Simulated assay, not measured.
Amino acid sequence: MPLSLAVPIHDAATLGKLIRRSRKQQGLNLETLAGLCGLSIRFLSELENGRDSCGLGRILIVLDTLGIELSAVPPEGSES
Results as ranks from 00 to 15, higher is better:
Pro2Ile: 09
Pro2Cys: 05
Ser4Tyr: 12
Ser4Phe: 12
Ala6Thr: 05
Ala6Ser: 12
Ala6Tyr: 11
Pro8Phe: 02
Ile9Glu: 05
Asp11Trp: 05
Asp11Phe: 02
Asp11Ala: 04
Ala12Gln: 10
Thr14Tyr: 02
Ser22Ala: 11
Ser22Asn: 04
Ser22Lys: 07
Arg23Phe: 08
Gln25Val: 06
Gln25Leu: 14
Gln26Leu: 14
Gly27Cys: 06
Leu28Gly: 04
Asn29Glu: 08
Asn29Val: 10
Glu31Leu: 07
Thr32Gln: 13
Thr32Gly: 01
Gly35Ser: 00
Leu36Tyr: 04
Ile41Cys: 05
Arg42Lys: 10
Phe43Lys: 07
Phe43Pro: 00
Leu44Phe: 10
Ser45Asn: 15
Glu46Asn: 14
Leu47Asn: 02
Glu48Ile: 04
Glu48Lys: 01
Asn49Ile: 02
Arg51Gly: 04
Asp52Asn: 05
Ser53Ile: 03
Gly55Asp: 11
Leu56Thr: 09
Leu56Tyr: 08
Leu56Gly: 06
Gly57Glu: 03
Arg58Asp: 09
Ile59Tyr: 05
Ile59Ser: 06
Ile61Gln: 08
Leu63Asp: 04
Thr65Phe: 04
Thr65Asp: 00
Leu66Tyr: 11
Ile68Lys: 08
Ser71Ile: 13
Ser71Asn: 10
Ala72Ser: 14
Ala72Ile: 15
Glu76Met: 11
Glu76Lys: 14
Glu79Phe: 04
Ser80Asn: 07
